[in-house]
């Protein structure tokens, strides 16, 4: 079982998604791909029952980093 997470390029910074994947690397296997519109992350959690939680944590982290990377004044 794995979960496909699609981060829209107009909403998420690619670097932030990469960074989030690195942070959660110990807890899951990640397969990354890129489409014209999105950064796609296929997540297979080490513990299947935690996959939903893991994908949500990853998404939050990527969003947080995206917001922070824009600064507050823009």
């Amino acid at each position: 079982m794995s979960t496909r997470l699609s981060f829209d390029k107009s909403l998420y910074a690619g670097k932030s998604v990469d960074e989030a994947v690195k942070v959660f690397a110990a807890h899951a296997t990640f397969a990354l791909e890129e489409t014209p519109e999105a950064w796609v992350v296929n997540v297979t959690a080490n513990v299947e029952s935690k996959e939903l939680r893991l994908t949500r944590e990853l998404s939050n982290y990527a969003l947080g980093l995206t917001v922070q990377s824009r600064g507050t004044s823009k």
Binding site: D8, L11, R56, S59, N60, L63, R70, K74
Partner: peptide
């Protein structure tokens, strides 16, 4: 504006999981 959306999303990420898509 997108910055307003980010601002609101950021306020919520400590109590919710927030995901944005188009």
């Amino acid at each position: 504006p997108l910055d307003a959306l980010y601002g609101a999303a950021y306020v919520f990420i400590d109590r919710c999981f927030v995901f944005l898509e188009k």
